[in-house]
Design a protein around this nucleic acid. Structure first.
Lengths: 242, 242
DNA sequence: TGGGATTTGTTCGTATGTATT
DNA sequence: GAATACATACGAACAAATCCC
């Protein structure tokens, strides 16, 4: 039932809890995740918390650095854009695999999901974003292709994180309409159209969220260049540990 | 230097060793990997071996089942084919990111790699296959895009595993020539051609290895259908745990 | 700069679950 | 089918690195 890589044990439960907290912005990029506190919070030992962090790290949602406290991943602007490029291609594959092959039951499930999105439209922003993300994961699940599912899931989650970081209000109206369009095209069995609709949808999401914020790419040395002090020793870059 | 998810510690070293053993078919799909023995073999405790197995599981090279000995992953025929579909799209992205942007130094490195492939042509089959796989990983590394690199690396490794399982002799001659063609197109800066060459190359590899072995997809019930006993109760499928 | 508190890295013992005779 | 052998799951404790005042 769960993805191949998961242990099926308690760590996965904690994993899901933390993941959800990240996706709903209860945890922000850069927030610390000490093993002790996690263990205490969820009533497990450090070993389990540690495993959960390992899982999340392999998904790219948290960053693990040796001898340092784990932190929620901080996707850069470029990474966010690259992530969407990958996602678009992966989800085109999803659509291709699903086109004209959805069972009535699956169609019903997808429609139910858009209805739920509809209902959540006036609710909290983060819930809408989570539901929108889950729609794409649902589709990937229906392909029955484990690797494709894993990658779509991971890129979708990370996109969600990036959107929380860089995105603006997300205007979920369009998103829901676009989701419906995808379903329609899939049911109609028009592969070309379905793939284009999906790609267009994702590109729209990325544009709405990312393109309008080119981000200064602030390197401290460059930012401070105009403020250089006359007659001072010329600035000298120090080694920066990555 | 290493991928984000890796702990940079001893576990990664063991990880690489096991990975290489799998890719070079010293370990075959289904082979058991007990923590104790791994630890003893590499002179580390079970904890470290355990971590390494976790890493490899997250890459899809080993399978972890609760309370059971870890085993080398056993990709099915469909999974192998799906993996290639994903790989083709990912590597098209690699090519797109690299086209016309390779530094002289990088071109030189790639050429050196094909020379090494050339030299290994009369050597052992598995070394050729590993080198061919590493060529693609090298390219992905040059994009500087962490997620793309991770996914290409993983799919390439798993493809390598599938090829070891299902593939026939691999005729490395064509592969080397095709690698050169990819480099040429990248240097020439012809994006459309470069992407097509790469996609064609991967499709060729997949076809050579996989398509010619449709695999009976043996479901026991179907196989035994012609041997049904007259006047016996009609067969009834039992639940199968996945 | 230094030192104490905190946090991670690792080992190993015990409990629990699985396979095999 | 039960008992034995064996492997993993988990946790407590110690060592080493890091953080922060």
């Amino acid at each position: 039932m769960t993805a191949k890589g998961e242990h099926g044990d308690r760590a996965s439960t904690i994993c899901r809890a933390i993941r959800r907290a990240i996706l709903e912005r209860a945890l922000s990029p850069g927030d610390k995740l000490p093993e002790d506190q996690l263990g205490e919070r969820f009533g497990v030992s450090r070993t389990i918390a540690r495993h959960a962090l390992g899982q999340l790290a392999s998904e790219g949602l948290v960053e693990l650095r040796r001898n340092r406290i784990a932190v929620v991943a901080t996707p850069s602007f470029e990474e966010a854009r690259d992530e969407f490029d990958i996602r678009i291609e992966l989800e085109r594959l999803v659509v291709r695999a699903l086109c004209g092959r959805l069972s009535p039951r699956q169609v019903e499930e997808l429609n139910a999901h858009t209805l739920e999105e509809e209902r959540a439209r006036d609710g909290s922003e983060v819930v809408s974003l989570r539901l929108a993300t889950e729609f794409h994961v649902r589709l990937a699940e229906m392909t029955g292709k484990p690797t494709l599912l894993r990658y779509v899931r991971e890129t979708a989650y990370r996109s969600c994180l990036s959107l929380s970081t860089f995105g603006r209000p997300h205007s979920s109206d369009c998103a829901i309409a676009e989701h419906r369009e995808v379903i329609d095209a899939l049911v109609a069995g028009d592969e070309k159209r379905a793939m284009n609709v999906m790609a267009g949808h994702l590109d729209q999401v990325a544009r709405r969220a990312l393109l309008q914020a080119p981000e200064p790419r602030g390197d401290l040395m460059d930012i401070l260049a105009p403020y250089a002090i006359p007659n001072a020793p010329s600035p000298r870059r120090t080694k920066r540990r990555t």
